[in-house]
Write a protein that binds this DNA or RNA. Sequence first.
RNA 1: GGAGGCGUAGCUCAGCUGGAUAGAGCAUUGCCCUUCUAAGGCAACGGUCAUAGGUUCGAAUCCUAUCGCCUUCACCA
Length: 596
Amino acid sequence: MSLQAILSNHVQQAVKTIFSADLQTVEFQATRKEFAGDITIVVFPMLRVVKGNPVQIGNTIGQYLVDNVEDVTGFNVVKGFLNIEISDAFYINFFNAIKTNKTFGFVTPQEDEKAVMVEYSSPNTNKPLHLGHIRNNLLGYSVAEIIKASGKTVYKTQIINDRGIHICKSMLAWKRFGNEETPESTGLKGDKLVGNYYVKFDQEYKKEIEALVAEGKTVEEAKKEAPILVEAQNMLLKWEAGDEETVALWETMNQWVYSGFDITYKNLGVDFDCLYYESKTYLLGKEFIDQGLKTGVFIKKEDGSVWCDLTSDGLDEKIVLRSDGTAVYMTQDIGTAIQRIKDYPDVGGMVYTVGNEQDYHFKVLFLILKKLGFDWAKSLHHLSYGMVDLPSGKMKSREGTVVDADELIIEMADTAKDISEELGKLDGYTDAEKADLYKTIGLGALKYYILKVDPKKRILFDPKESIDFQGNTGPFIQYTYARIQSILRKADIEEAELSSKTDKSIVLHEKEKALLKQVQLFPEVIQNAAKQHSPALIANYVYDLVKFYNSFFQNVQILGTGNETEKIFRVQLSQLVSNTIKNALGLLGIDAPQRM
RNA sequence: GGAGGCGUAGCUCAGCUGGAUAGAGCAUUGCCCUUCUAAGGCAACGGUCAUAGGUUCGAAUCCUAUCGCCUUCACCA
């Protein structure tokens, strides 16, 4: 039982016996460092049931706790705050109970718990991934790991938008200007090659618009009538009709993109359990539209288009099928969701990692699925995150104002290399080991930088200012981990000693106590992060833990202490902390290096 | 115009369901490596929590209005 739970019971008991009143809940908070105590009970809320002076009430309850609770050793009252002092024995008990648990805080998936499907990434297949996709991927991956750690089975998935006018644009430009170029012939990554033709298309398109305007057309007309655009649209029609040549080219170019994406995903360290392709699911939603028409969820208009009337829910009418019977984005999403539940019957809820531009879309999607009568629809969540913007504004692939994912990853590793070489602490490492470490540190910096901020906030990324490696950063946390590993290597303590129980008579240093308190919070932090879909909570937690450790490290001798019992305890504590750091970083998709 | 989000130190961000004198990092200025990794530690400086009201023992947090920035409201995805 947690400290709060134990104290809660006793405080309620105290209020009952002394004031003969019933207290519903007891409010706790961490004791501020300028006061003595380990945990604080707020007296003010009790005034609703107990009349009187808060200081007096605090004193009375404090005395009761000292008299009746073994682990409460003292108290003091400041205004309406009852600061409780807890015995070292309590923390040592806790330490003894969990010190050999390698996954403290993680809950193993329960059989009766429904699984969760987490969708993330879901790129278009016409251009390379950029910094915006990186945020999406890191968030989705991390949230999946966090939900897993909180005790649920998780499936990671994505919907690949492999169909549509965007890929036709790249296909057309390649056909016209490509001279049969391939990734092999150019040495380019497949997604980069295809992306180049997407940009090429846009350049040609703009030229044609200008030419048409010069001929006297309005800009609006020119945008619609530009021949290259018309041809791209024809290409999409041909694709939908199953034209052999078009489909073959589409398959080839998509394949190029996939192999390019695979490299980026691998470098980023993200993965998926299953994939869904829009080209395979876009027709799927239609049968459910038919079904919804029968049950009255949807209405057909005179021109044949199908709509969902959401005005009674405070929203608009939403189209779910065009008048020509073709699918829209919504149709496909309805079909995909239903298909996923069919494929994975143990799934009880889904998380969609998609930018906040689409808040409205998902609000509508979830509402429609509810109206269609799926009970799992109430367990759908849109993990909506803010855009990554540049000082110049939004990133735009067509205008070349994007921060390329592959390039950024390489730059980060290069920076790590520069810093590392300057510090020169890697004697004995092979070049391969070094290269590996630079990647780990570079990625650590990037991932932490992205994940430490609240997902719903937008991120302003200035390419001119490099991502930090000092202070509240990934490398700082990795460094602390490496530091502890160094201690453990030098400790020269036998395995049996490392798991031996700590004697309760030991007196804890304040820095040691602070560490144990912080470790104690981990399970709760994981649950919270899972509930709120927020890796930022994990990042903030591990940052605090690491700060406490560095302070401990600087102020307390670990191996150098003369006392053998103390030494063993401190090494064990270091091990526990390092293990917690590693596990927390793991939830963020960040590796913890042995040296750096 | 309807809907939604954001606004905290020069910069980047924390601040849980309302609680003590609003916290970190970067930057700036001091210290601390003959002792376990200085990508570190200790300290100083820095705030009208956008603004104005309200709710109450108590508000950065909840409510209302105003201002500023962003998104969305397509037979696009």
